[in-house]
Design a protein around this nucleic acid. Structure first.
Lengths: 209, 209
DNA sequence: AATCTCGGCAAACACTTGTTTACTGAATGG
DNA sequence: CCATTCAGTAAACAAGTGTTTGCCGAGATT
């Protein structure tokens, strides 16, 4: 009758969260490949054996973190694409959203940047499968914009990938900037805006060349 | 009288090379942070203690690898910038050179991609200090091109960074493509060319907007 | 109320780890 | 040719590792 899932399951979820959080915390200055089961359980306040009640592997924990991290990223992307408007406002809004996202999900973003080319194959694959899906989504959104009239499927895809790659680069750069120099952060954001403006300029003259 | 540096030093250099090569080999599917001294020396055919005759740290070995990797990258960049020509030929040449570079220095490129956001601070810093220097160098080269007449310092810098980031993204993508799908490699190269063309288009209309 | 499920624990397994030690023996230099 | 330098070694150190085992005791189920 209650909408809760049972105290049993709730406690299990709590432990699972503790493990994920502990992992995320430790991965702030470490690689997934160099993480240890004992290390994680110690940080989470559980016994080593408890880990195996939740994940078979550390790689599995990594994949779970990928899903989490990309869920929030997904929300972010949609919120940028949803609002229509002139190119300039869209650019400003996109950069603002990225900036805020990095600030509010620092751990997740760092995790993605670090493990995207990291040493654990399954995690790597999970990440760029999902980034590919992002590009597809961005591509569909671009297709709806009037500027894209007459663009081929391939052209749209390459533009979408350019945007996604640019977003990733910018996020990575912001990550390191935000925790040291606050002025550096503004400089990076400004650069990103200029770059997006240049791309948008190229876009307007595509095929008209 | 002989131009050799002495059998003594030569043997030491040989061991050092063995360590670097062993490290590079192991880092093909591992992170620097998860690498072990014993692991490296075992792979190199030396005793564990021998390692400390060459490096104080594994991080130091990492930094040495960064220097190696970026030396070859540096040569590559110069070879792209040296040849003048129309925008189209320049783009084709740039992509070709990147493609070849990734094929011929797979281990180095993978190392850079992996450790750029990896878990070892000193290595991370070494890498992006050097990438910053690249951007500066590219910026200077761009300034000499006629298309850049009237561009501010800041604009040149942001364009250079856009190019460098794009190069890094492309190289990373090629890395994974080359060792699986050969058709995928061509698709990535084609996409990169399109993206560079779009950027170059934006460049021509900058400030003329 | 009795039974079952199952998340968590402590302990034990057999290794692997980084680093220091005292040493050996070949190239070096006077 | 004798003394020195020094790259490389084997052995030992304490400390950490992943994973399995049997067990407990609190929810869940009947």
């Amino acid at each position: 009758m209650s909408h809760t899932v049972g105290a049993r399951q709730a406690q299990k979820q709590q432990s699972r969260r503790a493990l994920l959080d502990a992992g995320l915390r430790l991965l702030a200055d470490q690689n997934l490949a160099s993480l240890g089961v004992r290390e994680v359980t110690r940080e989470a306040g559980l016994s080593p054996a408890a880990f195996y009640r939740h994940f078979p592997d550390l790689a599995a924990l990594g994949v779970a973190l990928v899903e989490e991290s990309l869920a929030s990223l997904h929300v972010m992307i949609r919120s940028v694409l949803a609002e229509a408007g002139g190119a300039e406002e869209l650019i400003d809004r996109a950069v603002d959203v990225i900036e805020r996202h990095v600030r509010e999900h620092r751990a997740h973003v760092r995790f993605l940047a670090r493990e995207r080319h990291g040493g654990v194959r399954r995690v790597r694959e999970a990440i760029d499968a999902e980034l590919g899906r992002f590009a597809a989504e961005v591509g569909e959104a671009l297709a709806l914009q009037p500027v894209s009239r007459g663009w081929s499927e391939q052209d749209l895809r390459m533009l979408a990938e350019l945007y996604v790659d640019h977003m990733v680069s910018t996020a990575s750069a912001l990550l390191e900037a935000q925790e040291s120099d606050p002025a550096r952060e503004r400089r990076i954001a400004a650069t990103a805006r200029l770059q997006l403006r240049l791309i948008s300029l190229g876009r307007r003259h595509w095929q008209a060349s």
